[in-house]
Amino acid sequence: MKKSMLGVIDAILLPEEMGELAAHRSPAAIPFAGRYRLVDFVLSNMVNSGIQSVAIFPRSPYRSLMDHLGSGKDWDLNRKRDGLFFFPAPAKEGQFSRMAEHLDYFNRSDQKYVILSNSTTVANMDFAPVLDRFIQHKSDILEVIHKGESAHIYLLSLPLLLELIKNRHETGYKSMQDVVEDAGSSLTISEYEFEGFLKRIKSIDDYYQTSMQLLEKEKWSELFNEFQPIYTKVKDEPPTNYLAGSYVTNAMIANGCVIEGEVNHSIIFRGVKIGKKSTVKNSIIMQKSKIGQNCILEHVIIDKDVSVEDGAVLRGTPDEPLVIKKGSVESAVASS
């Protein structure tokens, strides 16, 4: 039954609130939780649910997303039949119009059902019970709900999806959300309430608050478990080196880091260096960034490859974290 589902990930739609984090990458490729990308969660959910064919519709720029996913090997999707497919399309077009450009893919698919999801929902979800509920209710479309709000994840039959794509000009529907929200539609809509940890990342605030929640053991355990692993691109790096003078409390630190300062309630990605007598609190430091000596960082999101010079002070607030763009250099004079 599981193999009867086709996975479709719409990685194009994104509110502007993601700002600098999405300025040079697809939202699906935004780094998250120390070693993952946002797309890893829905993609892993699909693979863990037995889905063997996944189509991704990315927005430009999508180079980092394609570099991360590659052939799909790390998700066991590098297959001779089915597998992982990329279908880039202009972001300005509607969801159904983008899919219409690749009807051959849908017509060749022999799966009976489709899971259609966004790329920025963080959850660990088995889609098999969702399919069971859909079949039991005999509805046209099933919408996944979390705490009374849509997760923007839908299940429907492949023939119905093809019908919605082909008839989009007559119906006026541009996306699945349009269909579900049309009170006058003749289609029947049912709901599946997901009770586990689920956060839809729609803004920088969502990203920051969700990241900080994962430092709570209970929340982390809900999202990551050995029975339904979250897969990501494998990178072989040495263990993190904690040097004399380092002090770490309640932090998530990936491999390949060098820590000489203090880290508290923060998420540190791969290959980060934190210098002597520097303090990092309530912050997120992405891959290969370098924090100099005697720096103070609080409520900050540091993107990849940032260099923070000695003595710099960077402060945001819990409600408005300070975002430092990828590849920039933050000097003590500019940031004090």
Rank of each mutant, 00 (worst) to 15 (best):
K217A: 08
K217S: 05
E218T: 09
E218L: 00
K219Y: 06
W220G: 10
S221M: 11
S221W: 10
S221Y: 07
S221T: 15
E222Q: 14
E222C: 10
F224T: 14
F224L: 12
N225W: 01
E226I: 11
E226V: 13
F227A: 15
F227V: 15
Q228K: 15
Q228H: 14
P229A: 00
P229T: 05
P229K: 03
P229H: 03
K233Y: 02
V234M: 05
D236M: 01
D236I: 05
D236R: 09
E237Q: 10
E237W: 04
P238N: 01
P239C: 02
P239G: 03
P239M: 08
T240F: 00
N241F: 12
N241D: 09
N241R: 12
Y242T: 04
A244L: 14
A244S: 13
G245V: 03
G245A: 07
G245F: 04
G245M: 05
S246F: 01
V248T: 11
V248K: 10
V248I: 13
V248L: 09
A251P: 11
A251S: 15
A251I: 10
A251T: 12
I253T: 05
I253W: 06
A254G: 13
A254V: 00
A254F: 09
N255R: 13
N255Q: 12
N255G: 06
V258E: 10
V258G: 06
E260L: 13
E260G: 11
G261Y: 02
G261T: 01
E262G: 04
V263G: 07
V263N: 04
N264V: 12
H265A: 08
H265Q: 13
H265D: 14
S266D: 05
I267S: 00
I267H: 01
F269C: 13
F269W: 13
F269M: 11
R270G: 10
R270M: 13
V272S: 09
V272N: 09
K273D: 00
I274P: 09
I274W: 08
I274C: 03
G275R: 08
G275W: 02
K276H: 09
K277W: 10
K277F: 03
K277L: 00
V280E: 05
K281H: 11
K281W: 08
N282G: 02
N282K: 04
S283T: 00
I284E: 03
I284C: 06
I284F: 00
I284R: 04
I285L: 12
I285G: 04
Q287T: 15
K288Y: 01
K288W: 00
N294R: 14
N294H: 15
N294L: 05
C295W: 02
I296C: 02
L297G: 06
L297T: 07
E298Q: 14
E298G: 03
I301K: 08
I302R: 06
I302M: 13
D303H: 11
D303C: 12
K304D: 14
K304R: 15
D305P: 11
D305Y: 11
D305I: 09
D305L: 15
V306H: 08
V308I: 15
V308T: 11
V308P: 14
D310W: 07
A312I: 13
L314S: 07
R315W: 02
R315Q: 15
T317Q: 01
P318L: 01
P318K: 07
P318S: 01
D319W: 03
D319A: 12
P321N: 07
P321A: 08
P321Y: 05
P321C: 07
